[in-house]
Amino acid sequence: MRVIALMCYKNIKFEIKFIEMHNQPEWFIKISPLARVPILMVGDDIVLFESDAIMEYIDEITSPQIMPSDPLQKALDRGKFEYASEIMKNMSIFVFSQDEEKFFKHKELLKTNFEQVEKWLENKKYMNGDQISLVDFCFIPVFVNLSIFKPVIQNCDLTKNLPKFNKYGETLLQLPCSKAARVPDYELLVVEGVKKINSYLFRSNPCFFKSIQQSNNSCLGK
């Protein structure tokens, strides 16, 4: 998602192929070193892999470049790239875990993660100030996924008393490139996945998931 958001932000023309990770096509397995998405094919022979490496490449070959040029700030931002990925890992376990203990463990980890982001945003609109930079694109998936389960997240107090964090999320979600980067029916696919495995989140919030299902059925009936 972060890579597509960046390409949309920079108005880069691209062709996208969606991969079912439980049913990977043979051609994808052959060219993806880690057998996971995303990858970026440059020409016929070069395959770039890992989101952060792809993003830096895209930024370096297009204008305007939004990765800081200062070596120290660049190193700090690369650390935050990884921190955003860690948040996504913790969030995935929180959302999909079938185990109650693991659910609450990762709830606390997420609260710590969000509090750290709140500190980084001191008196700033974006991570590095008033202008968007490459590191901000790493956090778009975090807030997209938070928005899917917003009522549940609020009930869990995960984002309570974090005004800068919440405002930052609103700013990122309002970006046109953020909306354009989502896989078709992304929210529905995530919700259906949570229901399918009967996760602790699903079991403890039946009313929320029932309302999502009713809303989806209503839309399909129009």
Rank of each mutant, 00 (worst) to 15 (best):
I4T: 09
L6N: 01
M7F: 12
K10P: 08
K13C: 12
E20V: 08
M21S: 14
P25K: 05
I29D: 07
S32I: 01
S32T: 08
R36Y: 15
L40V: 08
L48M: 11
E56S: 04
E56C: 04
Y57F: 07
I58K: 02
D59K: 06
I61P: 02
S69M: 14
P71E: 07
L72T: 14
L72G: 13
D77W: 01
R78C: 07
K80H: 15
E86V: 15
M91E: 03
F94E: 00
F94A: 00
D99I: 10
H106A: 05
L109Q: 12
L110W: 00
L110C: 04
T112S: 14
E122G: 12
K124H: 06
G129D: 05
D130I: 09
I132S: 02
V135T: 08
V142R: 00
V144G: 01
L146F: 01
L146G: 00
P151A: 04
D157M: 12
K160C: 06
Y168K: 02
Y168H: 03
L172K: 00
Q174F: 04
A180G: 07
E187Q: 08
V191H: 01
K196Q: 13
N198Q: 15
F209R: 03
K210Y: 12
S215C: 08
S218E: 12
S218F: 14
